[in-house]
Structure formats: structure tokens, C-alpha cells
Simulated assay, not measured.
Amino acid sequence: MSAHMYGLLAEFPNADALCAAAKQAREHGYTRAEAYSPFSIEGLDEVLGSVPDRVAFWTLVGGLLGGAGTYFLQWYAAVVDYPINVGGRPLHSWPAFIPATFEITILGAAVAAVLAMLIQNGLPRLYHPLFEVAEFELASRNRFFLCLPAHDPVFAPGPARALLEDLQPMLLREVPG
């Protein structure tokens, strides 16, 4: 592995060719291959062996914490800290606590979902070594790329280059690290 190499980047003409290339890379033991395309490709996550995301879990946690925290705050203020008898109503008048609890539950879930998504995606990322490859800007328009990163346990420059050349990519570039 070159000390200043991020990996090898191959460009493919369409989504089917990218999926086939990703499948070949996976069959050759590459567990950290990265695919880039202008749109979501069904089944590509499974081919690459991506881990399931945890955004839904953290959204639930954020909503539960927001709702429980808001309800507790209202209960504590009305019952323990500053009880006021208004018109003979009970101090723990739960129907009055529901609107604020609902709103903060939704807010907590939304904030947690956005934060979980950003953390899982590694964002904000202002720089990535792939930005050094001029053709990579087409990944957001109409091209499909597969990168075999040098930090993959089975990566070796010669065999990785041979594997990608056998897949007949439109372009094959070494990505500087």
C-alpha cells in the first residue's frame, strides 16, 4: 500500500455495471468498498455489505426523551415546585400538559433524526480525497464510481488494479491520500 494513496477509483457507464463491479469486489473479499452514484440503486447496499442505519432508533430515543422531559418539567412545576390551586382543579392536571408534551416530543424526534443522520453519514465533511479526482464531480450527475480504499484489509495495489481492470471500467484512477 502506498503511503499517500487513498485507494483506486473506477468509473462505470451505468448502475448495472456498478452493481456487478461491487459484487465482484465483495466476492474478492473487499469489505469496505465504496460506491457513488447520482441516485439510489436498489440492492447496492446489500451487495456492499452496508450496516443498517440507526436513525430510526435515535429518532425514537429523541422523541421519548423530549416528551418525558417536557411532561416531567410541567409536572414538577405544577405539583412540587410551585403548586397553585386554580378553580379547584387537581395539581396534576395531565390534560393541560399534553399539548406541550406532544410538541416537544416531535421536536426532540426531529432534532435527534437530523443529528443521527449527520453523524452516521460523517457530515459535515468539507474535504474528501476523492475530490482530488477531477472526473469524480460527475458522480452527482450521471456517472457511477466504485472505490476500493487502501484501508481495506485485503487491499493491495497490484491485485486491486487487476480486479478493476478486469471489470472494464471507463476510467481507472489512483486516488491520492
Rank of each mutant, 00 (worst) to 15 (best):
A17C: 13
A96V: 13
I106T: 00
H151W: 10
I104C: 09
S2V: 03
H128M: 09
L73Y: 11
L91E: 13
E11I: 07
S37M: 02
P38L: 07
H92A: 15
K23E: 15
F39I: 12
L9P: 06
N142H: 14
V61K: 11
G43I: 01
E165D: 15
I106D: 02
Y82I: 06
V47C: 03
G7R: 03
P129S: 09
V55P: 04
L146I: 05
A77R: 04
E11V: 05
H28K: 15
P129V: 01
P52G: 10
Y127D: 12
R125V: 04
W58A: 10
P124R: 08
L167Q: 12
H4S: 13
Y82F: 13
L118D: 04
V86S: 06
T101D: 13
M5F: 03
M117I: 08
I41F: 00
K23H: 13
L91T: 12
L130M: 13
S140W: 07
A134N: 12
A110D: 01
V55Y: 06
W94Y: 14
A15K: 06
A112N: 00
L148H: 01
I104N: 07
R161T: 14
R141F: 04
F145T: 03
F97H: 07
G88K: 04
G67D: 06
I98P: 08
F155C: 00
F39S: 14
V61W: 12
A21D: 10
D166C: 08
L148Q: 03
A77C: 07
E27R: 13
P83F: 00
D81S: 14
G88W: 04
F155T: 00
P52S: 14
A15L: 05
A22N: 10
F97C: 10
L123K: 09
L138F: 08
G7P: 02
T59Q: 12
L60V: 15
G87Y: 00
L126G: 13
V133R: 05
W58V: 05
F155P: 00
G7F: 01
P99Q: 09
C147Y: 02
D45Y: 03
T59V: 12
A139S: 10
L115T: 11
P176G: 15
E137Q: 12
P149M: 00
L123Y: 10
A35K: 04
T31Q: 14
I104E: 04
A112K: 02
A156E: 12
Q120L: 10
I98C: 06
A110F: 05
L48G: 11
H4V: 06
G69E: 07
K23P: 05
E46H: 14
L44T: 02
